[in-house]
């Protein structure tokens, strides 16, 4: 992405260039193998659910409060 150059030409070329650079980059990326991936998903899932359950428990406390004040 050159900083100089014709503005309009740059504008027309930008998306093409962008897609080309982007897909080249993704090709170069190191991807996790399926074993790593399941490990990550499990870790994230457990964390997400644990935090969510605590939060939801707090939200449940709200239901009787709502009845009291509304």
């Amino acid at each position: 992405m050159a900083k100089s150059g014709n503005q309009i030409e740059k504008l027309a070329e930008a998306p093409v260039e962008f897609v080309k650079d982007g897909s080249a980059f993704i090709q170069k990326c190191k991807k996790p193998n399926s074993k790593d991936f399941t490990k990550i998903v499990r870790a994230v899932g457990i964390g997400f659910l644990a935090v969510g359950v605590i939060g939801y428990a707090i939200k449940l406390v709200h239901i009787p409060i709502r009845y009291l004040i509304v």
Partner: peptide
């Protein structure tokens, strides 16, 4: 954001209310 979204997600999946 992360905690609230997690909460809503759990509510949407396992919410008993």
């Amino acid at each position: 954001t992360a905690v609230t979204i997690a909460t809503n997600f759990v509510g949407d999946v396992f919410g008993v209310n």
